[in-house]
Design a protein around this nucleic acid. Structure first.
Lengths: 228, 228
DNA sequence: ACTTTACGCTACACCGTGTCGCGTATATAG
DNA sequence: CTATATACGCGACACGGTGTAGCGTAAAGT
């Protein structure tokens, strides 16, 4: 979670001395309630409805109490989203297609929930706060990408796919369409689409492809694209 | 441009009567200066620096004059971006790869300019204003998508690629990575990456691919992915 | 008791959006 | 030339959201 909730200076000392800090302890239940409130507001009324005041009202606490825990609204929302979208266990079925399908299903579900609602506002906040951007990338995106990257690596080791791909680009082509559609809304995000993306990615990396020798070509076997 | 600048009620009557309206005419030079000012602010200081006041100051006009022309800041920014990113001529080289490369080059350049700076804020505004979202989709995205879609269709007619693809998805896989990287910044947008995307898309659609008959397979010719 | 921290509250400063009304400038219609 | 209609520049304002400061009080440790 890193720097998202840097406020408890007392907690730092706590970790250092491994003792209970001093003074009145922080009400830990508030953290969870705030996260729940943010996610609910996000889902039901969108990013614009998430204000410090609206969250405080929902949790029945004071605005200033929230500012004691998070230095800004951005950090608050990021904390909530990261809490919800924490690292997921990476699927390892022994087959690339199934691994990727599992990963894509996770994306599908994520965009139906609060993350889908938060995405546009989150992206705008990230653009204005590089530190926040780094946190979101590392805590939300990196975990998902890592599991998919490893799926490709395992497939390569198994000899299931060919070698030498720009894996990062494959990841972007696999998941980029989801973000793209979620943010611009020009096309719906469907299970069918998720399936097709995986199929197409598979076509890129698949082995078992033989170049048809020139003498054996039939009309229509145009080979515009060089293959290696 | 459609509904982005709906203010000139007089202009409606003008069009209806095809006469000069009445009263003091609007200073047309302001429109162009405003667009230039918005784009410059966007490029140099980012979306956050674009406020009605900052634009008015740059153009040396009054805030209220801007509100007479555009109903909100969102409309103002959208108008500027659409003015800059108007429909581009579609490349038609007779070869899919070259057509796609041209389209992708356009994207590459666009993200280096004001659009790249505006994107996060624009996306957030779109999420809060469905009407604005529709305008941006139609005026900015649709034109680019159309030219790429037609490139695929021409290639299909020429027999350069196979048939039956989800073209919309191919478009998303082709351009989604650019938007994805521009918005999240997890990887740079480079000429190399642009080239590779086109290569990979080509691998998906290319003909000249023959399934290796089972009796002719050599070890390592794993065929996990069904092909049709 | 004393110290230290958290909590809830009120008040405030700041900034950006969007609206209103005024006096003035510039066009057309009669 | 007068009347009408619109645009312009200006000042003022309401509204809402962010973030800060200070107060009295509550809850822990020493």
């Amino acid at each position: 979670m890193r720097n998202l909730n840097p406020q408890p200076l007392a907690a730092v000392r706590e970790a250092a001395r491994s003792k209970t800090p001093l003074g009145r302890p922080r009400d830990e239940s508030i953290d969870a309630e705030v996260v729940a409130a943010v996610l609910q507001l996000l889902r039901k009324r969108g990013y614009g409805a998430v204000t410090i005041a609206s969250v405080a009202r929902k949790v029945k606490t004071a605005r200033t109490s929230l500012y004691r825990r998070w230095p800004s609204k951005r950090h608050l929302v990021a904390y909530a989203v990261v809490s919800e979208m924490g690292a997921k266990p990476a699927a390892d079925t022994g087959e690339l297609r199934a691994d990727l399908e599992a990963a894509v299903q996770t994306l599908l579900r994520a965009f139906a929930g609060p993350l889908g609602q938060a995405l546009p506002g989150l992206v705008a906040d990230m653009a204005q706060d590089p530190e926040l951007a780094a946190i979101i990338r590392e805590e939300v995106l990196a975990a998902r990408r890592k599991s998919m990257r490893e799926a490709f690596e395992r497939a390569e080791v198994r000899g299931e796919i060919r070698k030498g791909f720009e894996t990062e680009l494959l990841l972007d082509m696999l998941t980029g369409p989801f973000y793209y559609r979620a943010l611009f809304g020009h096309a719906p995000i469907t299970a069918r689409m998720a399936r097709d993306v995986v199929t197409y990615i598979g076509r890129i990396v698949a082995r078992g492809v033989r170049r048809v020798p020139a003498h054996a070509r039939v009309p229509g076997d145009v080979e515009t694209y060089r293959r290696d």
